[in-house]
């Protein structure tokens, strides 16, 4: 079906033009894939091959030693723990933060479109405004708040920070998605006897798949990749990004490039995975509602 559609809608071009287009595209993709190639190739080489040879060359002796080292024995700051505990920190932070901010965003969107109240437009405007606040501005007030709540330097503190920061975006997504959802359905469900949460759970959520994917991907990548909040509020439970920085910066003596490459890939792997698994729904979700059918 896709191919039929693209054949109908594509502008037909000559053979030479087409070859040129493909060549350019090929070049671009190679250029974009180059860093990944360098990282993967050098993460499976012994250090001597990197320092003594060519960054672009394929490994002569294949080894997973750098990966094992990056994961469990490499020096992170002063502790030789590897990235493993920080990876776990990141997971413990990301999963609840994504889940909570997405659920709250969905509820906000539901209320802002289907249970309108006085000044709801202003509430939505303020939530939207939060999307534009730079991270740096909130660092000090956030530190005060976390301190008063007694969760400074903990994973729950980071979860709170990311939830607060993410609600603006998730609310925006869900509000716009639910705005296109017919209000008559909510009214019908009210007459049928369903309450606030039942309508949300049985009527709206089942059709919220595409926008949930968008929200989860967006939140996951942002929270996983965040460095500033992690380094500011992580304390002893710092996330993967901070640990990676410490791994790369704090080596004494010889820089173990192969270990650094392996660590960097480890840090990027979860977001990569999320994109591969849910990426096609991402585009679909972003387009949802813009075109009929």
């Amino acid at each position: 079906m896709m191919s039929a559609a693209s054949q109908e809608t594509a502008v037909s071009t000559g053979r030479i033009a087409r070859t040129f287009i493909y060549l350019v595209l090929l070049l671009f993709s190679l250029y974009y894939l180059l860093p990944l190639y360098v990282m993967v190739v050098n993460s499976v080489k012994p250090l001597s091959e990197i320092t003594g040879g060519n960054m672009m060359a394929l490994p002569q002796t294949f080894t997973l030693e750098p990966w094992a080292s990056a994961w469990s024995t490499a020096q992170i700051g002063v502790e030789p723990t590897g990235l493993k505990p920080y990876f776990i920190n990141s997971i413990l932070m990301v999963v609840p933060a994504v889940a909570i901010s997405t659920i709250l965003g969905a509820l906000n969107g539901y209320v802002l479109t289907k249970w309108r109240f006085k000044y709801d437009g202003i509430v939505f405007g303020l939530l939207l405004f939060s999307c534009f606040i730079p991270f740096q501005i909130v660092l000090i007030p956030m530190a005060v708040v976390l301190g008063k709540l007694g969760i400074a330097g903990s994973v729950s503190g980071l979860v709170l920070v990311h939830v607060v920061y993410g609600i603006g975006f998730t609310t925006l997504y869900y509000r716009n998605y639910y705005a296109a959802f017919p209000t008559e359905l909510v009214r019908a469900a009210m007459i049928d006897g369903a309450g606030f949460f039942r309508i949300f759970w049985r009527i709206l959520l089942p059709v919220s798949g595409p926008i949930t994917v968008v929200s989860v991907i967006w939140q996951f990548t942002n929270i996983w990749n965040d460095f500033l909040f992690g380094v500011s509020f992580g304390g002893t439970r710092q996330p993967m990004t901070v640990a990676l920085n410490n791994l790369v910066q704090s080596s004494t003596g010889v820089k173990e490039y192969n270990v650094h490459f392996a660590g960097a890939i480890l840090a990027a792997l979860p977001t990569l995975l999320v994109y591969i698994v849910a990426g096609r729904y991402f585009v679909r979700g972003l387009m949802a509602g813009s075109v009929k059918g």
Partner: peptide, 17 residues
């Protein structure tokens, strides 16, 4: 609405998709 013992047919039918 659910306690009035009424039923409503909507213009758009409002069937749960």
């Amino acid at each position: 609405p659910s306690k009035r013992n009424i039923a409503m047919v909507f213009q758009s039918y409002a069937l749960y998709p």
